[in-house]
Design a protein around this nucleic acid. Structure first.
Lengths: 178, 178
DNA sequence: TCCTGACTAGTCAGGATTGACTAGTCAGGA
DNA sequence: TCCTGACTAGTCAATCCTGACTAGTCAGGA
């Protein structure tokens, strides 16, 4: 859903060919999505079949022809609908990494501390890189702020976790399955 | 990857049949994963083909026979490997909902505030439900704590966002594409 | 006695996703 | 002149994932 919204929203700003779309997504929206090139083309095809977008063949000099995708009025309707749904809806994120944590007993404490420390360092590197991200214009900056807030909260959480794991307070006893 | 780790970790605690596995995941690990039944069977089959798990047919009374899956020693090796990878690795979460935010200009301010308020309310409901979650034993509780910390940070973020959107400070000007 | 809801076991067709690949252009440096 | 790296356009096989479905058992209440 969000992926279609993304493509529609981009095409709504202006007609675009595939390469530009994908470049923009990977360069400026990497913190929000991980849509890959084949998926983008797949979705573009599907939306064209649905009549949400159309394309015109264009060629520049000797280059191979390229398709300029543009949104249709039906696509605009769909965009409005998806936008409203997405803005008003909330679904909690899944912290899939916590699965590993749930099985982390069975590991010697020292090794667990070592592994989690490495994770903390990786997290810290991401935090710092994100802090250094140059300001983006307009609404995109919101995504970066959001990510940064989350990362900092995550770092506090990791530090707290490490502390708890290092001291006794977590190990021992039944770890909860059945 | 995490999904395989999850199944291996569960079977490592004790042999189990499909229904129990799926029930446990949906009841106790919903905050970490959204693995569905057909996916679970799919992965179970695949891992059996890989030799990571095996099963024995068992029947109780008149009931249809069922497969009790158990981990093999090869599976245990794989489990250890996945566990260490997962614990030491960090990848930032993608906030896919921010895509909608990036396109939220073009919406009348009043409507945007309304939509975001609805989202905030949905989020608040999740926060409250999570606060009321009964304590789980051992490491699983960590996942709940983690989720709650994130949800509360998310709520602060939403409130701040709403405030900014309601006052002038976000709209107007070029919103950043191209 | 029959019905219902919870228990148990899966399957299947179809859609979504992507790693790896092919194919060609063009500007600029060696 | 030739080579290279960035630009441009996609495709394809393979894998992953899931909504919807089928099939049967069993305890307990009406």
């Amino acid at each position: 859903m969000e992926r279609e919204l993304l493509l529609l929203g981009l095409l709504r700003q202006s007609g675009m060919h595939g390469y530009k779309i994908i470049e923009f997504i990977e360069r400026d929206l990497a913190m929000c999505t991980d849509l890959k090139k084949p998926t983008a083309y797949f979705l573009l095809d599907k939306m064209a079949q649905n009549g949400w977008i159309s394309w015109t063949e264009e060629r520049e000099g000797n280059r191979p022809p390229r398709r300029i995708y543009q949104i249709t009025s039906e696509g605009e309707v769909q965009f409005q609908k998806l936008l409203r749904e997405s803005l008003s809806h909330y679904a909690p994120l899944k912290f899939t990494d916590d699965i590993a944590l749930a099985f982390a007993d069975g590991l010697p404490r020292a090794e667990l501390v070592d592994l989690l420390t490495r994770r903390r360092d990786a997290l810290l590197a991401v935090v710092e890189a994100t802090r250094l991200t140059p300001a983006h214009p307009g609404f995109i900056q919101l995504g970066i702020d959001h990510q940064l807030i989350h990362l900092e909260s995550e770092l506090r959480w990791m530090d707290n976790l490490l502390e708890r794991v290092s001291s006794q307070s977590i190990t021992g006893g039944n770890h909860g399955f059945a």
